[in-house]
Design a protein around this nucleic acid. Structure first.
Lengths: 289, 289
DNA sequence: CGTTCTATTGACTCGATTCAAACTAAGTGG
DNA sequence: CCACTTAGTTTGAATCGAGTCAATAGAACG
């Protein structure tokens, strides 16, 4: 697969061009905004800061490596389309420690720890905007709320990781798989995707197994059980959850740990209402002079 | 167990009083400084900021709860002595998702996400300094390096969590237990403890099991295997690693993910040398106006 | 000195892995 | 467009690590 690169500003994507390539990116840029909004209360002027985001758009092939263990980068990967994952250890079936969906910035923490301690790879084809650390640095300085939102984006991973530990430590294979599926759907919905419980699944069953800490064979058997029970369809790189309640019941999934301001679909809902429900606290950023 | 509370400044502990109670705290306060130094390069004037730390010293009994899921606090828990752990889920053997050693601040991230998503409990008796969020806020503002160190302290947990996912996802019971022991020893050494591979172990075998995602019975069998092999002693709430190399071999432990600036014991070593080896990068803080 | 945790041991069961083979889908190049 | 290759999925059988249950022994604590 050819790797194309374009350097442009998000403003350009949004305002100027609308060819298919840029439309795609423009759509995904709004997912990044949605993702930030799902974590923190941002005003329109805060979001306006994102328009100046210098983005070098990269396309990655399935399994392509974005960041190798030990690499140090000057920019972060804003995921626009597809999935990325962190892989730890060596060997073919090394553990997947995190899966990222559009709107995420998997290596945002690299701004403080520039030396990657794992490998970031594409799960299926992925579109990524490379954004210099300096840009986030700058907009964090221009807006307290933006600084807070970016910190949340980085810290939200802690909640997810903690939950993965619970998943691997206490649940059996069926619960692990269904729980992961529920999490992915919920996170996609937070950026306005998978509204009908349907989403692209370019990953293999081995990938699923590597994320759930089970063997590929066993993952396959679980998937088939779910298919036979009518809870799930997985055809032509697309998963459709046909019985969401069954999945919730099987997995014991509760979305609280994702830190989303609204546990409902963020897509169409009003963020303002969600913000009102949650107790406010003073704008604060972790390391803020 | 009685719960005593004293309100004082670290300066007072360090400079003024030296009764047994305060000596204990003074010693442990230095561990907090060591912990920060283990993660980032700090000058003496940076560390001087810590002298003004307002600390309400609390003593907690084994299994006592410091922070319940859903609680929101105004201060962070600086662990001075003993161990704390995050527990997720319900039931007696709910998963332990993190173990903290002296010098850690398990809930530092609560400054940005004040609503706890898990339960923080004491593993054995613990001494904790409650420090207002505002204090960290302030010293982060006074020193870039301190801001960076505090951010690192918070982000270091991500590396540890990622490794726990690997531990639970890919390793068998023997590797999980030995890996956890190696991690604890290494983290204790980073604050000048366990220099001889010996450390207090007030936790039960059930706690160990809950952290490793195995049953208490199986944890017991693993410990006995290690004892019989002469790799380990566990008597009167003290663990002594009698064959460190065996544990390293069994677990495949490598300390890189702990983000310690020196993989050697930090206790007596010169932090300045370690800093020189590591490539420097501009002082930066995640969300810094 | 009894009560209550914690540690230990054995027997049985079961979920999950491993190995191996067959089958399907997806490319790739002549 | 088909033959060939490769990657991924599916299936069965044998095995094993780990869980569960239950009972006992020991330690800690009031």
């Amino acid at each position: 697969m050819t790797q194309t690169t374009e350097r442009l500003l998000c403003r350009d994507i949004l305002v100027v061009g609308w060819n298919s390539q840029q439309m795609q990116s423009g759509f995904a840029f709004s997912q990044f905004a949605k993702r930030l909004t799902s974590l923190a209360d941002l005003t329109d002027s805060d979001l306006q800061l994102l328009a100046e985001m210098p983005a070098a758009i990269h396309h990655f092939a399935p399994r392509e490596i974005l960041l190798r263990k030990g690499d140090r980068a000057e920019h972060c990967c804003v995921l626009l389309q597809g999935y990325l994952c962190w892989r730890n250890g060596s060997g073919r079936d090394r553990q997947i420690t995190a899966i990222h969906v559009p709107g995420d910035v998997p290596d945002l923490h690299a701004m403080l720890m520039p030396c990657a301690d794992a490998t970031l790879t594409a799960l299926g084809p992925a579109v990524v905007a490379l954004v210099p650390h300096a840009f986030f640095h700058r907009i964090a300085g221009q807006s307290r709320k933006m600084a807070h939102a970016l910190s949340m984006l980085s810290l939200a991973d802690i909640g997810v990781l903690r939950n993965w530990v619970v998943n691997l430590g206490t649940r059996n294979a069926m619960m692990r798989v269904t729980h992961l599926l529920c999490e992915i759907v919920t996170r996609l919905q937070a950026v306005g995707q998978a509204g009908n419980h349907q989403f692209p699944s370019p990953f293999t069953q081995s990938d699923l197994a590597a994320a759930c800490g089970i063997s590929a064979v066993h993952a396959n058997r679980i998937i088939q059980d779910l298919r036979r029970a009518g809870s799930l369809q997985w055809r032509s790189k697309t998963i459709t959850i046909t019985d969401w309640n069954a999945l919730l019941r099987l997995s014991g999934f509760t979305p609280g740990y994702l830190q989303l301001r609204s546990t409902e679909t963020m897509g169409a809902a009003s963020p303002r209402e969600a913000a009102a429900q949650r107790p406010r606290f003073g704008d604060f950023s972790l390391a803020l002079p």
